[in-house]
Structure formats: structure tokens, C-alpha cells
Amino acid sequence: MDKSTIICRCEEISYEEIEEVLTNGATTFDDIKRLTRCGMGPCQSKICHSLVASMIHEKTNTPYFQIPLPRMRMPLSPIKLETLATNSTSFSSVKSVMDEVELEDGKVR
């Protein structure tokens, strides 16, 4: 494939940029994401993850069943902060949803 081909439409990360980090030792989608911003745009890797998996497979000879899924975070699709902050009467939704995010011993949810 032409090296200038865009793989991640949102952050506009090219084949070449992903190839480079794979050459430098990246092995998973999340490695590539941290190094290039691939998959960090509004679609949150919904479109590029399968293309990236093929690249990992081709460049590193890793079988597909050893290429883990990208981490999928809340909110699962784009939502207005105004909606997340909400007019809910029962509780503050921002607090309840966002409080689920916690850090302990490197374990990230």
C-alpha cells in the first residue's frame, strides 16, 4: 500500500507513521495509539482498529488471535458534556459515571 495512505481518519495517521512505530517495537493497538495518536479522535478507533490489526499482523507476523483489542472507554460514543452533566433529578450523572474511572496499581478502567 502507498505509505501516505491515511489509516486513522480522525487523527490522520498514515500507514508510514504506524509502520515506523511497529518497526520500533510496538506490538498492540494501544502501543500504536500512545505513540502516534492513532485511534484517539472522535470515533475512538471504531473505524481504524481493523486496519491497524491487519498492519500489526503483516508487519510483525503476529497471528490475529494474539493481537489484543484496543481499549474501549466510556462514554462509548460522543456525548455533549451538557447531556452528561444533565438535569437529572436523582443524582449527578457526571459524578456517577465519571467516578467509575479509578486508578489502582496501574489498573485502569
Binding site: 456525548i79 455533549k80 447531556t83 452528561l84 444533565t86 438535569n87 437529572s88 436523582s90 450523572s93 456517577s96 459515571v97
Partner: peptide, 8 residues
């Protein structure tokens, strides 16, 4: 979400 609120 119903796009106005978030509820459980």
C-alpha cells in the same frame, strides 16, 4: 442517554 439526560 436520551440526548438530554443520562439515567441509570
Amino acid at each position: 442517554t436520551d440526548e438530554q439526560d443520562v439515567f441509570a
